[in-house]
Every structure is written in C-alpha cells, then in structure tokens.
Amino acid sequence: MNIFRILGDLSHLTSIIILLHTINTNKSTTGISLKTQILYVIVFITRYLDLFTKFISVYNTLMKIFFIISSVYIVYLIQYKYSQKHMVKQDLDNFKVEYLLAGSLLASLIFNYKFTPLEILWSFSLWLESVAILPQLMMLTRTGEADMLTTNYIFCLGLYRAFYIPNWFYRYFAEGHFDKLAVFTGLIQTLLYSDFFYIYYKNVIQARSSKLP
C-alpha cells in the first residue's frame, strides 16, 4: 500500500468519525442528509459482498466491516435516536434519489468487468458512490449556509477522493494496476466535490470576508 492510499482511507475514516462524534456530542442530526447516508449503506453493502468470497488482508476486512457498521449506525441515529421527523428541515432533503439508483443500475449493467451478480453489484456501488453526496450538497445549497459539521465532513470526504487520484497514478506506474471503472467513477466523484468547494468558497468564504470591516 502506498502513502496516498493510506491517507485517502484515513481521510475517509476521519470523515465518518467527525460525523459520529458531532452527532453524539450535539445530540442532533440537523443538516445531515438521511438520503445520502442511506445511499452510503447501499454502496458499502453492495461493494463489500466479497467479504464472503475473497480475503485480501486484515486491514481490508476490518475497514470494510467498519464502513458497513458505521453507515448503518448513522442511519439509525438519524432515523430513530435523534430523529429529524419533527423538523420542517427534512423537507430540504427532497432530492430524487430514484434517478441516482436507476442511473447507477443501468451504468453497472453496461459497464462491468464480468456479467456476474458480484461484479455488477460492485460496479453499481462505484457509480452510486460517485453521486451519493448529491442529496447532501443539494440540502446545503438550499439552506444557503453550511455549519462546521457538514463542511468538515464533506471536506474530509473530498480529501479522501483527492488522495485516491495520486494513488491510482502510483499504482499504474509502480504495479501496472489500473482499474478503469474505479478511476472513471472516482474522477466523476472528485469533480462533484471540487464543484462544491468552488461554490462554497465563492458563496460563503468570500461573502464572509467581504462583510468584515
């Protein structure tokens, strides 16, 4: 494993820990898109089915188990423990995820390494992950401002995607490893994050600094 891959995985881990820590400290899930979090549960479960068929390493297995359990736990927190049902704000989370699911399914049927259930679901998880943050980003755009939680969370997720790019370069040149599906969907995802950070910078950071005396 190279340093970029490790840093990428650690950023991903950090994003989830930030989310969990903030929810449990504030005892609130305000501002977090339930839809995005449910999409991540689907992403992790469909991608990590190979837990049952293939052993890669202890690190790989533990990380997969952590991602599945933490994503389910976060959905539980939003849906039951610190429910947002009484809040009007949930109406802001109205992105049509059906399109994301249908589009990812279609893409996975067309683009896959092998037409087997495991490979199709693996491809599906990549396509879905590439767009899973959209409901969260849409929610942020509607409210007009992001609190520290969502900003830090999305920043760490963006960092995770950014680190995976030099990781792919490294692996291509050092190991001859090139996973074209992972790279292509990963680039789409990174573009979404860069677009978000650009808009966020323009609207929030610049607006804030222009207000200062």
Partner: peptide, 10 residues
Amino acid sequence: SESDVDHDEL
C-alpha cells in the same frame, strides 16, 4: 477464470 482487476481498494 479470475476477474481482470483485483478489487482491493475500499
């Protein structure tokens, strides 16, 4: 046969 690419990333 094995698949072309190992899915060893997370």
